[in-house]
């Protein structure tokens, strides 16, 4: 079950490891979050008339 040590091709320490793949993935996630937020707020929510307004 465990993949602890089997199939390891090399050992990489903290200082020699740059998580570029993680940065790329998380960058895409950031963009998705941003665009989806804007869509949900300004299209789905504000376009969903009737909206509760304060006493004017």
């Amino acid at each position: 079950m465990s993949s602890d040590a089997d199939a390891l091709e090399r050992h990489i320490g903290h200082d020699e490891f740059d998580p570029v793949g993680t940065l790329a993935l998380i960058g895409i996630y950031f963009l998705i979050l941003l665009l989806m937020w804007l869509f949900m707020y300004f299209v789905e929510f504000l376009g969903n008339d009737l909206t509760v307004v304060g006493m004017i």
Partner: peptide, 24 residues
């Protein structure tokens, strides 16, 4: 999200993974 994905990436690269997304 970052720490966990980076830990997975570390494993993938130790297992020979390469590239921006190829390590997956």
């Amino acid at each position: 999200a970052f720490t966990v994905v980076a830990s997975m990436e570390h494993g993938a690269r130790q297992r020979g993974g390469e590239g921006y997304f190829g390590w997956l």
